[in-house]
Design a protein around this nucleic acid. Structure first.
Lengths: 330, 330
DNA sequence: TAATCATATGTAATCGATTACAGTATTGCT
DNA sequence: AGCAATACTGTAATCGATTACATATGATTA
């Protein structure tokens, strides 16, 4: 495997000149440039980035930690991140954490070991203190989920306003007994969506009834179970707002199992607008997040932090959108 | 940021001793070891892998190129690859290629530039010659999809046998007029699944009718369109085998739109057993690939190639499984 | 022509680790 | 005590790039 030395020798110049040709960092005579280019082609030379990165103390690599790539919600976000990164000469290293803190930490070692210049967290499970610690020493951005107290930038939608909009839509359809299928976790989005749900009800003078709030784990099966609870308790709402599309689809399956129709008997709303939301029958009414933009903006922010353009943590909210489909249109 | 030099000074030993403590490469006196360990803790030292990797000319990093992370089919495969990699001190770098050859090549540069020790391709779009070229110079494994002529190892299921099994199942259910929704692409799996379909029919003395073969692009919408074709041409099979689950779900949606029932009027089969296959109503009969194992085996193979234990390209087939659900059970 | 300046190029230090080799201290044995 | 073997440690070269600084060359001007 050819090195810069080999190229220099082949071209009859010094390594400095070869380096200058490669990086275009300063003037090189046309003759020398041609000799170097010829030698590079001749030897099929590829610069060894290990050497370069060591010298420059940078890797042009960004870590992206996400719970699982199997969640389609993340795919457009990642696409946005990648597009921005590539536009700026950066590469993205995607890391599946499986929502496991120790896995997260293993991957963070890559940054601590100088194999990445910065990190974006998607739904990290780490504590606020740990995150703050890391953010103090390295460039960090949180995307979608974030820790309120952590001294690190974040980019997300306004989940409270989005949930508020969702529930308002159900109320406008004439519903007064509205269930919520939420999750028992520590994500800020969960808390904020629950808040939005409550505020929308209260604003209409509807009492928040805790027996109408059930919990799942974002997943399809948990949506079935949560909806079943309503039937078991014989306390069935006329509309259900689920904080994930997968749970909403589970809820619909549960409703069908009782011989009821969606939305005629019970209206169902999801959250996230995963691909499948439009593929389903009935099409699922949901809240769309600007996933691609969330990814773009997060990466832009990270690159600025890496570049030292930003020191103080930033907070950026992007717009969400209500997507009305058949599952709530009586 | 502390370096090994700083640790050496703090501990009052040489860098060699520090390195030996870190790597446990040879005997170090208990006293020196303690001094080094203390200094490391004191200075919060993390070895700079850029230096180490340059010296050792390895990165303990494996590239995984996949068309898109949004395809749930890949997620368990990737999980398997990651688990095996981590067990062997390796990290995985996931790269979204968007089925774009130029993107693939950009990512391959990372390996050519010594930032990764090897690469696994999932459904590469590169030509056989290009793949062979790369496999000659670097450790390469192909997973699931592969180029027949490329001189590189591959791990996959036997797609022909799997499709054969699928169609046999439909025949056993009493179907004689069986449609195929395939794809127009150059993937070997497509070709092999079509072959399996044809052989199963011929074996039963059923003539292969080309008007019963439609093409999509793996996606949901293309499944709708393909199924619609049958209705438009007024040449509707009693069962349809789709080479992807998403197209199968599209086909079901199209069938419903005609006021027909699945499986009563038309049976539908998919391929891949994506998560959603079991979430759908009716549950989708499909062929499951051992995704996790495919990932594990691919990575094990790659590590062996990297380690020089394997020189000649290997071919490994894993077992598939027929998953029978409601969509074909009349 | 000599002095000045601009341009092109090369030498060698540097990044942070690993490790061959050499050297020193300690131990065991006779 | 003397010597060999063993255990430990340190010096310095090395990986492959970048780049500050020095130097050589040629062009320009007084």
């Amino acid at each position: 495997m050819a090195t810069i030395q080999d190229v220099a020798k082949e071209a009859g110049v010094s390594v400095a000149t070869v380096s200058r040709v490669i990086n275009g960092s300063s003037k090189v005579s046309p003759k020398a440039r041609k000799a170097v280019l010829d030698a590079i082609r001749q030897l099929n030379y590829q610069p060894n980035l290990l050497g370069r990165n060591l010298r420059l103390m940078q890797t042009k690599m960004a870590l992206v930690l996400l719970p699982t790539i199997s969640n389609p919600f993340y795919s457009m976000i990642v696409k946005g991140m990648e597009d921005v990164a590539h536009k700026n000469g950066y590469n993205v290293m995607l890391c599946n954490t499986n929502s496991d803190v120790s896995r997260e930490k293993v991957y963070l070692e890559l940054m601590k070991n100088r194999l990445a210049d910065g990190v974006i967290f998607l739904a990290s499970e780490m504590s606020e203190e740990e995150l703050s610690q890391i953010a103090m020493r390295f460039p960090v951005v949180q995307c979608c989920e974030y820790k309120e107290e952590a001294r690190a930038s974040h980019v997300s939608i306004d989940n409270k306003a989005a949930a508020y909009m969702a529930v308002k839509h159900l109320i406008k359809q004439g519903h007064r007994k509205i269930g919520l299928i939420s999750c028992e976790n520590s994500f800020i989005s969960t808390k904020q969506r629950e808040e939005g749900y409550k505020i929308a009800l209260e604003e209409e003078g509807i009492l928040v009834d805790l027996s109408l709030i059930k919990h799942g784990d974002y997943g399809f099966r948990s949506g079935i179970r949560a909806m079943n609870q309503f039937f078991i308790e014989n306390n069935v709402p006329t509309a259900v707002f689920c904080i994930s599309d997968s749970m909403a689809i589970g809820a619909i399956k549960s409703i069908w199992a009782k011989g009821l129709k969606v939305p005629k008997d019970i209206a169902v709303m999801g959250f996230d607008d995963i691909n499948f939301a439009s593929m389903y029958s009935p099409g699922l009414t949901t809240i769309a997040q600007p996933q691609y933009d969330l990814g773009c903006v997060s990466m832009e922010l990270l690159l600025k932090v890496i570049g030292g353009e930003i020191i103080e943590p930033q907070t950026i909210y992007l717009e969400h959108e209500l997507i009305i489909r058949e599952s709530t249109l009586g």
